[in-house]
Design a protein around this nucleic acid. Structure first.
Lengths: 140, 140
DNA sequence: GTGATTGCAAAGGTTTTGCAGTAAC
DNA sequence: GTTACTGCAAAACCTTTGCAATCAC
């Protein structure tokens, strides 16, 4: 978390981008919620606590920017609502088929992206295993 | 494929659901395109070749129904457009970070959903590994 | 000062819903 | 004949975009 924030300031300095209060608020809100793979809407709500005038469009623009900068990444989602995730590399996801929530897990074994992909012209940046099912709240 | 179609008729008979030409067209269209994890829109276009009057809303309703019946499933997507996938169990996905296309791969090793999930109250139905990167068309 | 960034509101794209008519059983 | 299903159009979402005003540099 501290690593992400530090990286952040440096990257902003290097580019001609500006570190506005809005972007700081969005990043802070994201870091706060990153464990739960937040939607833009929930990041927006949290960010308003730090910068009450920030607009939803700015939240989307900031998140897109952070994705472009490689600070965060989009998480695959089942129901058409974008979710965001940290860039920390090897972790797996549990996707609830009922509520769409995404949970994060850390597992020992991680499949290797072997030569098969390279042969076929695919360039692999990241690998993640997804478990589908019902989460504790939805298991009734 | 034949297995899915056969299962289909049986399941319809058992429930009080009706096997309409529209639903047959949607299922046929989906089976035709299943390899490429089609969106509702592309299934709609293909389905109109079998049933020219079918509406987009009906396509969505049919796909939802097939998901409920366990015939097909939703595939995780990065860009807010739903994609559909077969229920055939062990296969992996490559998600292109640029165009959002999903490719299917069959790999030998498949991580096991071990007791860890059960302990925590998660019920795992299915497991899939996702590789993120650029596909051949987007690799430029 | 200059140009990137913002907030708002409007537009865009995807998916869902209400309803009267239709068709499968 | 019933009742589930359909097509249409409108509504409901989520996300992006245009633009004048603003603020970080």
């Amino acid at each position: 978390m501290a690593a992400v924030a530090a990286l952040d300031v440096e990257q902003f300095r290097r580019s001609d981008r500006r570190l506005t209060p809005q972007r700081q608020a969005v990043l802070k809100a994201f870091l706060e919620l990153s464990r739960e793979h937040p939607t833009a809407e929930s990041i927006y709500e949290a960010a308003r606590r730090y910068c009450p005038t920030v607009g939803l469009a700015t939240v989307y623009r900031s998140l897109d920017l952070f994705v472009q900068m490689g600070l965060i990444q989009k998480a695959p989602s089942l129901n058409g609502t974008a979710r965001y995730d940290t860039q920390r590399v090897p972790h797996d996801h549990f996707v609830c088929l009922k509520c769409g929530r995404i949970y994060e897990f850390h597992k020992a074994q991680q499949p290797e992206a072997d030569g098969e992909f390279d042969e076929k012209g695919f360039q692999v940046f990241n690998t993640s295993t997804i478990y589908f099912g019902y989460c504790p709240s939805c298991r009734q």
